[in-house]
Design a protein around this nucleic acid. Structure first.
Length: 144
DNA sequence: GCCAACGTTGGC
DNA sequence: GCCAACGTTGGC
């Protein structure tokens, strides 16, 4: 299973809204960046992702699961962009903020630190585990 | 509100 | 194909 990080402005699409969609999930649409599109294409159903609030917030607030693979973005008329579907899995008990991440030397190579503008990012297994621990999820909670 | 980083556009 | 100009993103 691969790990990802999805960024959203809470004013645009918030974690509360994502959670409210429940198991039905929501299209992760509107991505218009090639690198981000390539990451969407690489996602498999069952992959996990951090839900990160950019702008107001700047913190990882939840975990989502890819529930449908990449398909043409319904909001794109040109047919060249992709979206996946994600559903909320759980919140992070103690949201992990950008300063938290930047102050952890083990996370200094995170894409979020190196290229904060990329809206769909890969996360390494180590980074995933470290952030889950920082967020207050024990290994039992993480594996379910 | 500022500005650095990044991506895209378009003239050459 | 290079690169300057421009627009956007997002942390601060």
């Amino acid at each position: 299973m691969a790990y990802w990080l999805l960024k959203s402005e809470p004013d645009d699409w918030s974690w509360d809204q994502q959670q409210a969609r429940g198991k039905a999930g929501e299209d992760w649409s509107g991505v218009r960046n090639y690198q981000a599109r390539n990451n969407l294409r690489a996602m498999k159903v069952g992959d996990r992702g951090f839900f990160y609030h950019s702008g107001a917030g700047k913190e990882i607030v939840g975990i989502v699961e890819v529930s449908a693979p990449a398909q043409p973005d319904p909001t794109d008329k040109t047919g060249q962009w992709l979206s996946v579907k994600v559903r909320a899995v759980r919140d992070i008990p103690s949201p992990v903020s950008m300063p938290d991440i930047k102050s952890n030397s083990r996370l200094k190579n995170m894409v979020l630190v190196r290229n904060s503008r990329l809206s769909v990012q890969p996360v390494s297994p180590d980074e995933w585990r470290i952030i889950c621990e920082m967020g207050g999820l024990d290994s039992t909670a993480r594996s379910s």
